[in-house]
């Protein structure tokens, strides 16, 4: 309960600083690059293989019903609604959430955050806010990339393993994939980005106890973010299915 209380206070501090000048564009772009550009390859590799595995699994089932041509649309729907945002978030937690916690945590234990405060700079404004904004903007971009490469992976498997005609593959995607599937995935991804950044930076911010504490903060950040992302995804899916999808 105490931890939840502290986290709520932390959230209030972060949200009160989100729109407060000066806007630290250089830090924002630095984190955009760190999360975005530097993580693209990992996201591409993990979601391409996910698309391929999914196509393989679905292909064998659908072949029983002579419905292999629907593999592309099924993979595209699964990816854009769920798998791309979740896979992207989990990859970014492992790669960036952990480093956010470790960086801020090691700054805490070496008194760098105290130094910042003494120089009249709020560490939340300087260190946390640019990371939160960067995550908010870059998570959907990487999710979009994940959608594309995941479908490309499914395309490769469908056309080579199951001999699905290329034009049929895309035609079925065009027929069944609703733009709202993509929008909802991207929206969820932006919110998951904020959740990951907030939990990871919080764990770094409250680090105590030297190098051991930094290690503990990093582990807690990864575990908590992963669980929070899955829970938040379920809640958002429920809301979106009842609003966006129904409206669509």
């Amino acid at each position: 309960m105490i931890t939840v209380g502290h986290f709520v206070i932390y959230l209030r501090r972060v949200f009160s600083q989100l729109f407060k000048p000066p806007f630290r564009f250089s830090q924002f772009f630095e984190h955009l690059e760190k999360i975005g550009v530097d993580s693209t390859l990992v996201v591409v590799l993990s979601t391409t293989t996910t698309g391929m595995i999914l196509a393989l699994q679905l292909g064998y089932i659908m072949r029983m019903f002579h419905a292999e041509m629907f593999v592309g649309s099924a993979v595209a729907m699964a990816l854009s609604r769920e798998l791309a945002p979740i896979m992207t978030a989990i990859v970014l937690i492992a790669r960036n959430g952990s480093s956010m916690a470790a960086e801020i945590g090691s700054m805490r234990v070496t008194e760098q955050l105290d130094a910042m405060e003494i120089m009249a700079v709020d560490p939340i404004h300087y260190l946390v806010v640019p990371r939160v904004w960067a995550a908010f903007f870059i998570f959907p971009v990487l999710t979009a990339v994940a959608n594309i490469v995941g479908i490309a992976g499914a395309y490769f498997v469908s056309t080579t393993v199951f001999q699905v005609d290329a034009s049929l593959f895309f035609q079925k995607i065009y027929l069944f994939l609703d733009p709202n599937d993509v929008y909802s995935g991207l929206m969820k991804s932006a919110i998951l980005g904020v959740i990951v950044a907030l939990i990871s930076t919080y764990n770094g911010y409250i680090t105590k106890g030297g190098a051991k504490g930094v290690g503990r903060a990093t582990t807690t950040a990864v575990v908590t973010s992963t669980v929070a992302v899955l829970v938040a995804d379920y809640i958002m899916t429920d809301i979106l299915l009842n609003t966006l999808m129904r409206a669509g």
Partner: peptide
């Protein structure tokens, strides 16, 4: 407090230089 701190300098035990 932030205003007051403009009059103060502080040297930390391990200097607390920003490592980035």
């Amino acid at each position: 407090i932030l205003d007051m701190r403009r009059d103060f300098g502080y040297l930390f035990q391990d200097a607390a230089l920003f490592d980035f």
